[in-house]
Amino acid sequence: MKKLFSILLFVTLFAAAWTSKAAAQDPQPPSDDDVNRVARQLFCPVCENTPLDVCPTEACRQWRALIREKLAAGWSDEQIKQYFVEQYGARVLSEPPRQGWYWAFYLIPVVLLLLGVYILYRAFTSMRQPLSESAQVEAAPESPAAVETQGQQDYLRRVEEELKKRN
């Protein structure tokens, strides 16, 4: 959540600073930290589910070297990521790209969560109706407010009992 945010912010700021710097003076060789910053956002198909910056395989070492090459050439982080997607497919990204089919990936959990909220709301309202219907059929018609007060008095009585016990 927040991490991504700060990375994005950092990346944009840095990219801006970097491009201007790269244009202004001799390109400084990118540091390991620069390489890792990009690598952290990529996943190599050879070691699945391990971020590129900590993956010890030879393939991943080459990928990091490529990132370094591209950084030295003045590419921005986004450009490099885009390049990797073109070369190796969408699976190198830490998340599905936000396009086409993949929107469903982002929307479905939200829809399910909203459904959960709705079910919970229904549960609240239905449970607050006078007890279960079967029990209430013969009972004298009571206004919901009356039931509420009664239930509440019930609860208060219990709490008082509890306090007595505790003391």
Binding site: M1, L4, E48, G89, R91, V92, E95, P96
Partner: peptide, 23 residues
């Protein structure tokens, strides 16, 4: 699901979980 529908593998990594589960 992605592999079934699009024949493309995707990675679902920490950013997704952190953003979605964090709140």
């Amino acid at each position: 699901i992605s592999e079934l529908l699009t024949n493309q593998k995707v990675t679902v990594g920490p950013p997704y979980y952190e953003r979605a589960a964090g709140p």
